[in-house]
Design a binder for these strands. Structure first.
Lengths: 340, 340
DNA sequence: CTGAAAGCGCTAACAG
DNA sequence: CTGTTAGCGCTTTCAG
């Protein structure tokens, strides 16, 4: 507000126009406390006429709700995060909340200060879509009794609202799918070892193997860290094995995409020479060629549920944290083929 | 702020701790006006020690800068928007600004009110990444002298800060590339006719045709509206033509992806049976198979420049609007082949 | 049911 | 150079 901008019409103007005190206006605007229906209507009408729009900063400063929630993400560059954001956005629009987007850019050192700034800012709550949330975060959040929900990650303490999906089951299903199509030499491109989702996927993989009496071979595990680049390297290594694996289970679609690239670079064909299955079902999965068979995480839905859980806390601050785990689903497309 | 949350430490606490008045604290925190170096240090130290973090709402309410900028986008679901967002984010982080993200969801009816709410909110400026911004928007913004910049779109009035890229030239280059590789029956999947970028691309296309003495054939134009779905339909139509075009220039990558899908559905091969070229170079362009030859728009850079232009206005409210047009570039990949 | 009054945390003149 | 004093727009007791 630097230069001469027209004065905003405030709750005060509305009060004047409707002939009541401005605290009454505040009351009707917030829907709280009983107000005579006639005055209520009068105020609403005046507000409408004057084109009044609430000033969220003032409201928030004064101790009300800002109707803004924060979303903390590491960065803005993959379909996975984007899909969840969409779900969040959808849910937020419905309830008339706005979104403040914070990107951490992996600056772990500044994170505590960051979270502090966010919580004492205008947001009513915080959605954490960051892998590897330092416990410090959570402790601070809990301490301040600040509403937050963890998306797709655990908190090692069971004291947070969490939304995630069936990682173990999904990995189990993926592996089983491969096994049932005759694959037995199945390589695994792992994720970020510190993440429970990664570990669960590996466990699901092992469990399926065991169930089909296929011995687990650790030389068939290569580290992909959920990244395309590293997955290319990992896959290149896996392809050099002798005998070569007949299928690769990549811990997420991003690394599956990397795996596909590596296979192409090696002049091999998918799925004729090697089958690939991913995890997530990000939008890119269905536009690659061949289209990627994968385990679908209901990403958008996770976003929506996260918002729901957050609003739940904002409205009823004393509820016990709960965890919602959504079901994954096998999506069969073209990157896996049956073998002898 | 509902339940008993620990009181935030304020500028006042810092003042007390450092033995100065709290307006002095405000001064050093804002870097303004001369303050004795010794007191300055004292204050900074106290602030650090107490873990003080500024309350942006209060600051903004009081007439200062909130260090938050708003970004208005139609929705959150394509690489194009996402790439620009990344650039915006990168630039913002560097200058210590936060991002408020607004999605319009194409609710044109509520837009005026929306913009009003945004401008009287805590943001210091607004980035508009929405196609077809109603003139009403702009008028209101200008009227309030509120800092904003239009990304990848004109304003029909030359009174706005704008960042875009060489749409005409890019389309010209794409077409020329095709022509030089021997194509002459080139189809064009158009964008959103109301957008100047769409029109410029069509014009560039025509210009190249003319330069190579290839008569423009309007039956080779099909409407794609910058969407994958519609591009599939459009392309399916184009493929039914007799003789079939040997190449398709899609107005953006999203529709190029749709075109590729349609070609596949028709059991034809790219680029053996038909060449395809896109526009944008969204991330997906390089992971399709075959990889898409396209015209690269410096999306991230556009985002960065947009932020730069916005900050320029915020800092110097009286500058004249300017327009920055960035260069596009042909990116040759695998979806176009030379023909006899 | 509704007015009056006290801040929320901070910036911005205005005096020293 | 630094303290004092008003508000910014709104929510919230506290009295009527």
């Amino acid at each position: 507000m630097d230069t001469q901008r027209p004065k905003n019409i405030t709750i005060f103007d509305v009060a004047q126009a409707s002939g009541v005190s401005y605290s009454t206006v505040s009351r009707v605007l917030n829907g709280f406390t009983f107000v005579k229906e006639s005055t209520r209507l009068k105020v609403l009408e005046a507000a409408e006429e004057l084109g009044y729009v609430a000033n969220m900063q003032a409201r928030s400063l004064a101790g009300g709700k800002s109707k803004v929630i924060g979303l903390l993400v590491p960065q803005l560059d993959n379909g996975y995060i984007n899909e969840i954001c969409r779900g969040i956005d959808q849910a937020l629009v419905k309830v008339g909340y706005d979104l403040m987007l914070y990107t951490t850019h992996h600056e772990k050192d500044k994170e505590a200060k960051y979270v502090k700034a966010i919580t004492n800012g205008l947001t009513d709550g915080l959605l954490l879509l960051v892998p590897l949330v330092p416990a410090a975060y959570i402790a601070m959040l809990r301490e301040q009794n600040y509403p937050y929900v963890l998306i797709d990650q655990g908190d090692n303490a069971g004291e947070s609202y969490i939304v995630d999906s069936t990682n173990w089951q999904g990995a189990y299903d993926a592996t089983k799918h491969l096994l049932e199509l005759g694959h037995s030499r199945i390589a695994f491109v792992s994720g970020i070892p510190e993440l429970s989702s990664s570990r669960d996927r590996l466990e699901g993989f092992k469990a399926a193997l065991q169930e089909y009496d296929v011995p687990f071979d650790s030389s068939l595990i290569a580290e992909g860290f959920f990244e395309a680049e590293l997955a290319i390297e990992a896959t290149t290594y896996l392809l050099s094995l002798n005998p070569r694996p007949s299928a690769i289970f990549a811990s997420n679609d991003l690394s599956a995409l990397g795996a596909m690239e590596a296979v192409r670079q090696a002049k091999l064909r998918i799925p004729e020479d090697i089958s690939i299955i991913g995890f997530d079902d990000i939008p890119q999965a269905s536009i690659t060629y061949p289209k990627l068979t994968t385990i679908r995480q209901p990403l958008e839905q996770m976003g929506r549920v996260a918002v729901k859980l957050l609003l739940e806390q904002i409205e009823k601050p004393d509820l016990k944290p709960r965890r919602v785990t959504l079901a994954t689903q096998l999506v069969v497309r073209d990157s896996v083929k049956q073998i002898a």
